[in-house]
Design a protein around this nucleic acid. Structure first.
Lengths: 349, 349
DNA sequence: CGCCCTCATGTTAACGGTCCCATAGATTTG
DNA sequence: CAAATCTATGGGACCGTTAACATGAGGGCG
């Protein structure tokens, strides 16, 4: 009178065992109805399905993960969620992964490398089947953790020279260079830029790459780089641009054209110029990066460098699905999704 | 020569067993070093710690969850991630939950109720210890699932009349009413609004509540509601506002003041007005909702209704931590975080 | 000096699924 | 028509961890 009849336990969540008993089949059959119904006779399937419905059974993926060694998690590490382009990446990624029944595990680092490491450790404990990282700069410890994780690693939104996994991205340096070339070709000679500072633990590597590319190209053209201003810290936003352009104009009042490492900053620049009565593009030309929606709507519409972030997310998702379908493949792909200039009205022609 | 000595298995991930053998202690001791180090003698702790480091051991939370019946997951369901205010909620929530070592599981529905149900089922299979929902309108099946989940449910960013769990939010109707009252008090009599349509499965309940509150207040004041325009579908954005104000002005060219259910739309309205040479606020006053950063930076700065979304997220996080600490408590709290008008320059005084 | 505590650690049995193999009946095949 | 193959289902071990209880060594105390 012990063992068997302790159904007295008041209302825990139903398990697969409860379902199997109610349906009069084995646990394994229930499991099959859930994960691959075609293996089960329609009549049996029906019995099981109604037992599931009656009990309100919801399978426990933690138990399933443990047994099958597949968690269905994909880890995504972002600098921040409060940036439309990163959100777009997450969005595109989800779209694709949803279909394949993967669940995204999102962590964000606030551009802080120590935090990245902590977050990574947390994520790894969940045994993701693939790991997606934004940007290519990681601490040593982080790299070691990643390497020993033994799952596909995807580095996106960058084009690192020494990647540790698959790469799907674009060159942030090239973004900077393209912006510079564009302005130089328009005939400007007094050219500046605004970005974030690079001190401390909290920094925006990808933005800094864009700044460097920009400076390189100015130098290459024999132009001065003294109007390239690093001000405030990531994440960049409208206020950043408004403040930074002030600093820039103090330093170089004769500046004719400016590159902002983010459209958000660029919009801040535009608004500050309106306030100061500086006409864009007549007195100052502005080019941004990111092609945020606001740039299209603002007056004057913002000339910017576009990258298809949503598509980048989708592409990453497809790669992951592909990779996981055909087992481990350690050949590391490298995809450059490229970039394009969107010419609008904020640069004088 | 069987059983014991099959360490030949080439390099699976190390388990707690490997660590315990290397450190010469039991598995339980390793477990304690990880989850509550104070229970273990410093010397032992040290041995274990270095075994962990040597092997690069990372615990498997799926196994841990199964055994301890605690997953450390908190589920968050949002309409979309591409909205700064929802992102801010996620942000505030994470800040708090990080400390307490919970991992956020984010799902988004694209304002689609069928999708909400699917997502909910996925989330539930992960056994979250609490579930956070935005908005208070759910399908019947979803409500049933939620109720039987037997974990705290928090409904946020709304103030439902018949809540199914804890509520931390504000009244979206009150937002609409407040906006209307503000414009009425300013002496306007020809007042309109722009929001999204309400047809089909995909809709923005919370936005619609704001519209209703607005209409109610107009009616209460004896004013016509024919300039309240529902156009396009959620998620709202800049383009929405630009398009919707066109529709509104066709219908009611004499409109003096307009409420946009989202700042994003409001900014679109402002920009479209600039393009059409309509002076804001001289010819048309505009008030928005959400206090998005862009509204502060734009010219003229946007008058809007502010809700502290980041704080709302934090508060939600704290409530969850509190709730989980002191075991199940089924008393359902109700917190109104309130709202405030931010007067800037887009409404004529 | 025996007794009882406390503290550090070990032992055992779950947790809720799925993998792998076995089995019995139905169906094909030479 | 016996053997081989296929189909639908079942049985048991196992995934990696922790809860709960057991154990044994040391310390304080009357």
């Amino acid at each position: 009178m012990a063992k068997t009849e302790e159904r007295v336990k008041r209302s825990r969540r139903p398990t697969i065992r409860d379902v199997s008993q109610l349906a009069g089949v084995s646990r394994m059959t229930v499991s099959r109805v859930i994960s691959d119904p075609d293996l089960v006779l329609p009549a049996t399937r029906q019995k099981v399905a109604s037992a599931i419905a009656d009990l309100g059974y919801v399978p426990d993926r933690a138990a399933g993960s443990l047994a099958s060694r597949k968690t269905g998690f994909i880890a995504l590490m972002l600098p921040t969620l409060t940036n439309a382009n990163f959100a777009a990446v997450a969005h595109g990624l989800t779209e694709v992964l949803r279909e394949a029944n993967y669940q995204l595990l999102i962590a964000y680092t606030e551009y802080d490398m120590a935090e990245e490491e902590r977050q990574l450790r947390n994520l790894l404990a969940r045994r993701p089947e693939a790991i997606v990282l934004t940007g290519a700069t990681h601490s040593n410890a982080a790299s070691k953790l990643l390497l020993s994780a033994d799952v596909p690693i995807l580095e996106i939104a960058d084009l690192p020279s020494r990647p540790i996994g698959h790469v799907i991205g674009f060159s942030n340096q090239e973004v900077g260079r393209t912006a510079a070339r564009y302005l130089i070709d328009k005939g400007f000679t007094r050219i500046g830029a605004v970005g974030a500072t690079v001190e401390g633990e909290v920094l925006d590597h990808r933005g800094e790459e864009r700044m460097r590319g920009f400076e390189d190209e100015l130098r290459y053209a024999g132009l001065p780089t003294d109007a390239v201003v690093r001000h405030g810290k990531a994440p960049l936003s409208y206020d950043h641009g408004a403040a930074a352009i002030g600093v820039l104009l103090d330093k170089a009042p004769d500046c004719e054209a400016v590159f902002a490492v983010s459209d958000l900053s660029a919009v801040g620049v535009l608004m500050e110029c309106q306030r100061r009565g500086i006409s864009v593009p007549d007195q100052l030309s502005v080019i941004g990066f990111g092609d945020f929606e606001i740039g299209r709507i603002i007056n004057p519409p913002l000339t910017t460098i576009h990258v298809d972030f949503n598509g980048l997310g989708q592409r990453t998702g497809k790669t992951i699905v592909e990779l996981l379908k055909r087992g481990v493949s350690s050949e590391t792909g490298r995809v450059d999704v490229g970039l394009s200039i969107i010419e609008r009205k904020s640069v004088k022609t």
